[in-house]
């Protein structure tokens, strides 16, 4: 991992650790932590989406479905089968990964518009299943009484505990993804994005890599879904519909989908926008999302991190010995 990324990681970890005290000093304590827990959960989902879409260049409009598969796996296994939540969590990841593999093998042979439509169709089908399989999911009226998480026998209570758990997980996932990117695998993914035919001719099994990164993104989405389940303790298919897939895409785009830092930044920002300020005018919500997405796609396709005037940049910039190329 290059020095720049290490520095940002360090700063991020410190800021995150200090954040709870910061908001306490300002006053409104618990509410901002609550929003941050959601932001962290969505970050886990969006790290995977950023790898898939920003780096490997494969669009997916099914991330909400994988998020939902993780969420319902945790919900159903703990409520109806009395599983330990910590055991249900990896189960959900495996299940989502398996489904992603089954769908991904044929779907990722498609490109561009066709891939987008295929993942879109798949996402809608999964949403219909959540609605219809009332016996398992509770259908539209939802799945209730989902147990919370406990660590070492102590139940996790209050936002602070959740905040540290979720963001700790985000940091671990972030390190994993950064390692991946600055390696043979990451280079292969970027190569597939930039010049697929040359990547294939240089010995990269492009089909296999696309499916693998799709599976990874699904597993991360499912992990986010499991946390979501145990945090809100209530599930309803509305949280996993097409609009959520588009929200995830928007979060990644706002920050900049060709950078994991962009994914984190955009996710936190848009979660605050969604939870804090859009609540005021609920009827505009979709309209505002559409406008932001369109504006970003047209005028700032590489997201906020591509703005050159971010003041901290100078400090973070490494001496010019780095051999990592510019990210697209």
């Amino acid at each position: 991992m290059p020095v720049t990324d290490r520095r940002i990681l360090l700063v991020l970890a410190l800021v995150l650790a200090a954040f709870p005290w910061g908001v306490r000093a300002v006053g409104a304590v618990s509410h901002y932590l609550d929003v941050m827990v959601f932001a962290g959960i969505f970050c886990i989902v969006n790290l995977g989406l950023s790898l898939l879409m920003g780096f490997a260049g494969q669009i997916s409009l099914a991330q909400a479905a994988f998020f939902g598969i993780g969420a319902y796996s945790s919900g159903i296994l703990t409520v109806q089968f009395a599983w330990n939540p910590w055991a249900a969590m990896p189960m959900g990841m495996v299940l989502a990964g398996l489904v992603a593999w089954l769908v991904g093998v044929p779907a990722l042979r498609l490109k561009g518009h066709y891939l987008a439509m295929a993942t879109l169709g798949f996402g809608v089908i999964v949403h219909i299943v959540f609605n219809e399989e009332v016996r398992w999911t509770g259908g539209p009226s939802g799945l209730v009484d989902i147990p919370g998480l406990s660590v070492a026998g102590t139940p996790l209570r209050g936002e602070i505990a959740w905040y540290y758990l979720v963001w700790g997980t985000v940091l671990v996932a972030l390190v994993f993804c950064l390692n991946l990117l600055h390696s043979r695998v990451g280079r292969a993914l970027r190569a597939i994005h930039q010049e697929e035919k040359a990547a294939e001719a240089m010995g990269i099994p492009t089909a296999r890599y696309k499916v693998q990164v799709f599976v990874l993104s699904a597993a991360l989405a499912a992990l986010g879904g499991s946390f979501y389940t145990h945090y809100v303790a209530f599930l309803n298919p509305g949280s996993f519909d097409l609009m959520w897939s588009i929200r995830f895409m928007l979060m990644v785009m706002v920050g900049g989908m060709q950078s994991l830092w962009g994914a984190v930044l955009g996710t936190v920002l848009m979660t605050f926008v969604g939870n804090e300020w859009l609540q005021v005018f609920a009827d505009y919500e979709v309209l505002v999302y559409g406008s932001i997405l369109l504006g970003m796609a047209l005028f700032l396709p590489d997201g906020l991190v591509s703005l050159k005037s971010i003041p901290v940049r100078g400090w973070l910039r490494t001496p010019r010995s780095s051999t990592e190329g510019t990210q697209r």
Binding site: R187, R190, Q194, A198, A199, T323, R328
Partner: peptide
């Protein structure tokens, strides 16, 4: 080439 990667990459 992979235009957005470095020569070494």
């Amino acid at each position: 080439l992979f235009a957005h990667m470095s020569v070494l990459e």
